[in-house]
């Protein structure tokens, strides 16, 4: 074998929300099938920069590591994506890791995506049930409808669609494609549809669907291939009808 291959990884470090960011470079021994998470574990085991300076392990979020939990989103070589499915052999080197920029920074690559969950509350993203008691089966649903709903409900709340959206930034409070998609999902469900009006009112509220200007980066960035622009246009139609009908008849 030739001499061991190495991987260069540059990480944008920031000790805390108030600190100034700085870049650190790490040199990592290459092995087959490595992903970005494996690099970060290596750095934790040997937190020394490529110029031999001792530093601290890089903080990052991760859980399932199979792209179903949404935790490990970060900006890799300029693109917002999940770190677990970012394979080293497919990335240009040096690999540049940055935290997502549209969420409050906690430390290093960790950001606080709580606003997505809060917006899901404000937009009433659930099927309101009467209780957990044994009161019989749910409504029947056509298989075609289930297939559409399933595709929408695979959203992992990773936040990539917010990160790449030009309309999500410090000037506006757009809830982002993920939440609009949730509104469509729950309006589709027979029980959820009984409360569609409340959701459609909410989605016309502060940071609502009116903020979307169709740059459509969301649908490209979605790791789960959710038809986000379809959801967006569908909710646009529903919200508009709801508002016009509400204005005319209430």
């Amino acid at each position: 074998m030739a001499e061991a291959k190495t991987i260069l990884v540059r990480v944008k470090r920031q000790a805390g929300p108030q600190d100034t960011p700085q870049w650190e470079e790490f040199s990592i021994r290459w092995r087959p099938n490595m992903n970005v998470i494996a690099c970060l574990i290596d750095i934790a085991e040997n937190p020394v920069t490529s110029d031999g300076r001792k530093t601290t392990p890089v903080s990052y979020e991760a859980n399932c590591l199979e792209e179903v939990c949404g935790a490990c989103a970060m900006v890799i070589n300029g693109h917002s994506r999940q770190a677990c499915s970012a394979l080293v052999d497919h990335l240009e080197q040096p690999i540049r890791l940055e935290p997502m920029s549209k969420f409050p920074l906690v430390r290093d690559l960790v950001v606080d995506r709580q606003r997505m969950f809060n917006d899901a509350k404000r937009m009433r993203c659930w099927v309101p049930i009467d209780g957990t008691y044994a009161i019989g089966p749910g409504p029947r649903i056509a298989p075609e409808r289930q297939e559409v709903a399933y595709a929408l409900s695979r959203c992992i709340f990773c936040g990539n669609c917010l990160e790449v959206c030009p309309k999500v930034n410090e000037h506006g409070d757009f809830v982002g494609a993920a939440i609009v998609n949730q509104v469509r999902l729950f309006n589709m469900h027979p029980t959820g549809a009984m409360h569609a009006h409340e959701r459609l009112r909410a989605v016309r509220g502060p940071g609502g669907i009116q903020e979307c200007d169709n740059a459509q980066n969301c649908v490209k960035a979605c790791p789960k291939g959710i038809p986000l622009t379809e959801s967006n246009n569908d909710v646009n139609r529903q919200a508009l009808l709801d508002s016009i009908l509400g204005w005319m008849f209430h």
């Binding site: 000037h171 200007d213 169709n214 740059a215 459509q216 490209k220």
Partner: peptide
């Protein structure tokens, strides 16, 4: 006003619709 609330990012995400957003 709408423009002022957006932050273009075509240098990172140079997709067709994103170009249209900026061109618009």
């Amino acid at each position: 006003y709408i423009w002022s609330r957006g932050k273009a990012n075509i240098s990172r995400y140079s997709y067709g619709a994103n170009w249209m957003y900026v061109m618009q």
